[in-house]
Simulated assay, not measured.
Amino acid sequence: MKKKVYIFLFDGFSDWEIAYLTPEINKSEKFEIIYFSKDGNPVVSMGGLRVMPHIPFAEVNVDDVDLLVLPGGVAWEKGENNELNHFTKNVFEKGKLIAAICAATSYLAQLGILDKIKHTSNDLNYLKAIVPNYAGESYYVNSLAVTDENIITAKGIAPIEFAREIFEKMELYKKGDIEKWFQLFKNGIWSE
């Protein structure tokens, strides 16, 4: 049975932040991507891409989630996606993998998920400004992408590093092949 990767889409989501990871996961026979939105209706990305999700949020079963991907977008900073709060906490408490990039990291901080886990974001001061109750400062790592336990976080400028962290945690490819992929997309270098 394929492992299920749920990707939350919403109006204004940062489409480029998931653009490197989704094709690779989609090619795999081991995983299935399920795109979902609040109501299952089409959403428009920050880049103007109109996307039709597979299902509405109401149809997502937390027990089916192997990976939850939260792309960035200003909606997180405005508190527009709070209907996912209980669900996201439940995914975390069940030890399932959550990957958040850019402003979605502020959402995990708001939920307290980053309080005792190594993480990154766009900037430490960004998190402190967006999330007044943020309590994870001592766990903040100034890195492009960080994985700790079952949480992957990345700066908005690091979609390739974000994808690499996900691939490694999911064991999408062998470690050496993941590094080859990374070098190709990050530096334009391919080695046999």
Rank of each mutant, 00 (worst) to 15 (best):
E24W: 11
N85H: 09
E165G: 00
E137K: 03
A163H: 00
S191C: 05
C102M: 08
L21P: 01
P71G: 07
V43L: 11
P56G: 03
A104F: 01
I7V: 15
S106R: 04
P42N: 14
L108N: 09
F167S: 03
I101T: 00
T88R: 09
K175C: 05
K128V: 08
A154G: 01
G12H: 08
W190M: 14
M46H: 10
N82E: 09
N61W: 09
G176W: 12
E29H: 10
Q110Y: 13
F10P: 03
I152H: 07
K89T: 10
N61K: 11
D115F: 05
P159G: 03
R164L: 13
S14Y: 01
P53H: 07
G112L: 06
G73D: 02
E192G: 05
D66R: 06
F31G: 06
I178E: 09
K2D: 03
Y20T: 05
L144F: 06
E29L: 09
V43A: 05
K3S: 08
K155S: 12
I33G: 10
Y6K: 00
F8A: 13
L184K: 15
W190G: 04
I33C: 12
D39N: 13
A129S: 15
E192L: 11
K2G: 00
L184N: 13
I178Y: 05
A19N: 13
K186D: 12
K169N: 05
A154S: 08
Y134Q: 14
I7D: 14
T22S: 15
V91F: 08
W190P: 00
A19C: 13
I151W: 04
E24N: 09
I34D: 03
F182C: 01
S14D: 06
F13D: 02
L67S: 08
K128W: 07
N122T: 08
D15Y: 01
I25S: 08
K116V: 11
L49R: 12
F36Y: 14
G47Y: 10
D66W: 10
I113K: 01
I152L: 11
G48W: 11
T147C: 11
I178H: 06
F13L: 07
V131Y: 03
L124R: 02
H54A: 00
L124V: 01
H86A: 10
R50I: 09
K27H: 11
L124C: 00
F87G: 10
E32I: 00
Q183C: 11
N187K: 12
G48E: 10
V60A: 07
T105F: 10
F92N: 15
S45E: 12
L70N: 03
F8S: 10
I34V: 15
V141P: 07
S28M: 02
W181M: 01
D64M: 01
W76P: 04
L67A: 06
G79I: 05
D39R: 09
V44F: 03
E165Q: 13
L68W: 03
D39V: 08
I130G: 02
L21V: 15
E171T: 05
D66N: 14
E179L: 12
A109H: 08
E83Q: 09
G112C: 08
F31P: 02
I130N: 05
E161I: 01
G176M: 12
L127T: 04
E168D: 13
K4V: 06
I7H: 12
I178P: 02
E171Y: 06
G156M: 04
